[in-house]
Design a protein around this nucleic acid. Structure first.
Length: 898
DNA sequence: CGCTTCTGTCATCCC
DNA sequence: ACGGGATGACAGAAG
């Protein structure tokens, strides 16, 4: 691993240096700079969004209106993406070498995802919303171009940093660098690769320094960056102002600062990148949760240091230098939905042209494959294993989590592998590395941990396919090493898996063990957990065997497991069923039942990613499915058997064995992850329920996915959810299996999830593609109706609860108001009493001084004081009334007094 | 055994 | 007219 890391890092650094020297822009990560609103856009609606809402969004994306309040301007977003793509393509022209391309290419798939995580991180759920709007507004006029330009500038900055890091990283001394880094971080994640290594730790320690104004960052940048900066300024023109403006909206610092007040934006960004990668593999939900947590927590900073750089390299590099065609395609194609999800490239492709997906990726991938190879050479051993492993390609392709996968499937297996590896590696590093740097923030870490654990678990589960694990780990290590390698032995130590490519298996074992330990620590490793792990592992193994790319998916399951700690059953169920529900209700759900939440969006995005990945698999509609089917079938069989031996009966058995492997085959890890993650989240408490159908995957995945989505669904549906649910939640499984069983009995060729989640058009197309009998059609439509209704019921209940909570709040508020009014009333009464008392005192005082004609003191009880309009005061006898007063002028009285 | 809660489903209304 | 969301009501399962 160390070797790989060194090579990888060195190669990357060299590349960055060369690029910077050549005047090429090396994108470390544009996304981070995007305003939170854009991030949301990219990410899509947050977790809260329900499928339906999501569908609506999807359907309405064209209009750019009707979006959920949270989702800002999709149109703007798309336009910006396009423009970015163009701009990037322009930059790419400069890139001379295929190696560079390949190097960058890896990132390409990530760019969007990368952005998403950043956005998420930067803006906590609540904050993001607020921020999103503002940033967009000012820029709205400017248009997307500015953003793109800004991003480019950022890239350049990053490239500069790269130089810095690579060449003179340590020149200024750690302290100075740290300061710079801090400033830079605030300004944006700049590059980073190297500086982060040594600095990350210190940054974490000296986070205070990191908090700098954007202006300061700009100054530093200007100082540090010579020509490039000037060029940028020329190019950008007045951009600078934008940059300064952007930071507030985009800058992670805002969100990040909150936790520790810390500035290490770079770290954060890196971390975000890592998360983004993770997200790709895992699910949007994870991203969401993790990011939300991350924003709050600073631990992310530390994490960012490592992962962020790697991610940057992946994403940014890809964005900037990535192959022109690919980037362009990706950028152009990157659909909002997917963009939010994380892996913009593939998802978009899938959305726009489901059928094309496989093609585009292949072509691009082919080109990149060579580049990747070169890269591999740089990395030495790291990449090689991945390439060598055919399984990985499968896994990638199959992995819903991985965005690239779609495109990468056939051709870019290597690229996909790399990405996966990176992501996984990051995860692994995160997990494996106890590093102080990564010391997770209490809030943040959990999410990350969960993710990581999940992944860890997955590998464990996948242990049967050591290569896959090794790949994942290696990439992680390589990546981490890449960034940290020079200075940081820690990384290596952290990885604890120096094993080079050859040692992948060993690494896998170690990693698995570590993961298990982590899980055990986190979850307490109850027997149930162990059993789950075993089951998952079993499932995963099966899946892996058939589909190498499943790692991610499994990771998702693993995540779910980790999160399940609190509620193992629940998670499983959720995993199976609830992914969507969580996402749907999660964040915003409370306030607007209908309004989708960011979490949902994330989930949706994740789903989309998954779908995209599935899509690739789908590319060959059933070929893979069939392969996997058998194994999956077996798993399903077991799960069902365990759960419902009663019901299994002949139908299920037969159906399972024969027919609907598709469903069983490929679980949707991302979805599951999301569900699980959400379930685990504390903030979901009241929301709390997972709903199987809420899973955004289908709807979210890609409106255009058509076949892709269908296949993905087919693959997914049954597999995981059922497995999880089957093992533990009989009831849910039963519920699930109910329709599922029916479907199997009727030998319906696609999964229920697909049936339920596909848009009407795609659903109809699906039905048209298969020659179904009348019974089958009826059943399918019933399944769809029930599934929709189920989701609707869940949402309705959630809404109801929200209303209840709101009412409770209102009641409590009104009570408080009432009590306040009562207090005020009492106060007024007291004041009145006091005034009366004082008046009586005054009266007594006055009468005590009055004398009648005889010189006798007047009795206040017998006389009254009359105040005349002219200011005179007379004394009247109470007995005689006012009519017969013994009048005395005030003057007389005064005289008397006197 | 009864109660409560959760969840899926149905029927219906409405858009 | 159809699809689908929303919702009240009912039923089953589980605690």
């Amino acid at each position: 691993m160390l070797h790989l890391k060194k090579y990888f890092t060195e190669g990357l650094i060299q590349m960055a240096i060369l690029l910077s020297l050549c005047g090429l822009r090396v994108d470390v990560g544009l996304e981070p700079y995007l305003p939170p609103s854009w991030h949301e856009m990219m990410l899509g609606p947050t977790s809260a969004l329900t499928q339906t809402q999501f569908h609506n969004l999807r359907n309405r994306l064209g209009d750019g209106q009707d979006l959920h309040p949270k989702s800002v301007d999709l149109d703007g977003f798309f336009t910006t993406r396009r423009l970015l793509g163009w701009v990037r393509s322009l930059d790419r022209l400069q890139v001379p070498h295929a190696e560079l391309e390949t190097w960058l290419v890896q990132r390409e798939p990530d760019p969007l995802p990368m952005v998403c995580p950043d956005l998420l991180e930067r803006a906590p759920a609540g904050v993001e919303r607020d921020r999103t709007a503002p940033p967009l507004e000012p820029r709205a006029g400017l248009g997307t171009l500015q953003e793109e330009e800004e991003e480019e500038e950022d890239k350049e900055d990053e490239t500069h940093h790269a130089r810095h890091n690579s060449g003179a990283v340590e020149e200024p001394g750690e302290e100075e660098e740290e300061e710079h880094l801090g400033r830079r971080t605030e300004g944006r994640r700049r590059l980073g690769g190297s500086y982060s290594h040594a600095n990350n730790r210190e940054l974490t320690q000296n986070e205070d320094q990191s908090s700098f104004s954007l202006q300061e960052c700009l100054r530093l940048l200007e100082e540090t960056f010579d020509v490039t900066e000037e060029q940028q300024l020329r190019d950008v023109g007045g951009r600078r102002g934008d940059l300064e403006r952007q930071p507030p909206g985009r800058d992670p610092p805002l969100s990040h600062i909150a936790p520790t007040g810390n500035p290490s934006l770079d770290l954060e960004l890196h971390w975000q990148d890592l998360l983004a990668i993770m997200d790709h593999e895992n699910t949007d939900v994870d991203m969401m949760t993790s990011f939300d947590h991350i924003q709050n927590s600073r631990a992310t900073e530390t994490l960012q240091g490592v992962g962020s750089e790697a991610l940057r390299q992946n994403c940014n590099d890809h964005d900037n230098t990535a192959t022109e065609a690919e980037q362009e395609v990706l950028l152009m194609e990157t659909p909002m939905q997917h963009g939010s999800l994380g892996q913009s490239g593939t998802p978009r492709q899938s959305e726009q042209e489901p059928a094309l997906l496989p093609l585009t990726p292949s072509a691009e991938l082919d080109d990149h494959s060579s580049a990747l190879n070169s890269r591999d050479t740089l990395k030495n051993s790291n990449t090689n294993p991945s390439h060598s492993l055919p399984d990985h390609t499968h896994l990638l392709a199959q992995d819903p989590s991985e965005d690239f996968y779609v495109g990468l499937n056939a051709d870019d297996s290597s690229s996909t592998l790399n990405i996966n590896l990176l992501t996984q590696g990051l995860v692994d590093t995160m997990e494996g590395s106890p590093c102080s740097q990564y010391a997770p923030h209490p809030d943040n870490l959990p999410s990350f941990d969960a993710n990581f654990h999940s992944r860890d678990l997955t590998p464990s589960s996948f242990s049967p396919s050591p290569e896959g694990n090794g790949m994942t780990q290696d990439p992680l290590t390589s990546i981490s090493g890449f960034f940290l390698a020079d200075e940081e032995e820690d990384v290596d130590d952290e990885d604890g898996l120096p094993s080079p490519l050859c040692g992948l298996l060993e690494d896998d074992v170690i990693l698995d063990e570590m993961r298990l330990l982590d899980l055990a620590l986190d979850e307490g490793f109850s027997p149930d957990m162990a059993a789950k792990l075993e089951e998952e592992g079993f499932l995963g193994s099966e899946i892996i065997e058939q589909e190498n790319g499943r790692d991610v998916d499994h990771s998702g399951t693993g995540v779910a497991i980790t999160e399940d700690q609190g509620q193992p059953r629940r998670h499983q169920q959720d995993g199976a069923v609830g992914a969507d529900s969580d996402s749907g209700l999660s964040l915003d759900f409370s306030h607007s039942p209908a309004s989708p939440c960011a979490s949902e969006a994330s989930s949706y995005s994740s789903s989309s990613t998954s779908s995209s990945s599935c899509m690739s698999a789908v590319g060959s509609p059933f070929s893979e499915d069939e392969d996997t089917e058998e194994g999956l079938e077996g798993s399903d069989m077991e799960g069902e058997m365990t759960i419902k031996q009663e019901e299994l009966e002949e139908e299920e058995m037969g159906a399972v064995g024969g027919g609907y492997p598709e469903d069983v085959k490929k679980p949707f890890p991302p979805n599951y992850r999301d569900h699980k993650l959400y379930n685990g989240l504390p903030w979901q408490e009241h929301i709390g329920h997972d709903h199987t159908y809420n899973q955004p995957w289908l709807s979210a995945s890609s409106p255009s996915h058509g076949k892709m989505s269908t296949k993905s669904f087919l693959q997914h549906d049954d597999a995981k959810p059922y497995h999880h649910s089957s093992s533990r939640h009989i009831s849910e499984t039963k519920m699930w299996s109910r329709d599922e069983r029916r479907a199997r009995t009727r030998k319906i060729p696609f999964s229920n999830e697909l049936i339920v989640n596909l848009p009407v058009e795609e659903f109809n197309d699906l039905l048209a593609n298969y020659q179904l009998t009348e019974e089958q059609l009826i059943l399918v439509r019933d399944i769809r109706r029930r599934g929709k209704n189920k989701i609707a019921a869940q949402n309705c209940r959630k809404r109801k609860l929200d209303v209840l909570y709101d009412l409770e709040d209102n009641v409590s508020g009104l009570r408080r108001y009432r009590s306040r009014l009562l207090r005020e009333k009492q106060e007024a009464l007291r004041n009145l009493q006091e005034m009366k008392r004082e008046l009586g005192m005054l009266y007594q005082d006055v009468f005590s001084r009055l004398r009648d004609e005889e010189g006798m003191p007047l009795n206040a009880m017998e006389y009254l004081l009359n105040f005349e309009s002219d200011g005179s005061v007379s004394v009247a006898s109470r007995k005689q009334g006012a009519a017969l007063p013994v009048t005395k002028t005030s003057k007389k009285q005064r005289d008397k007094k006197k």
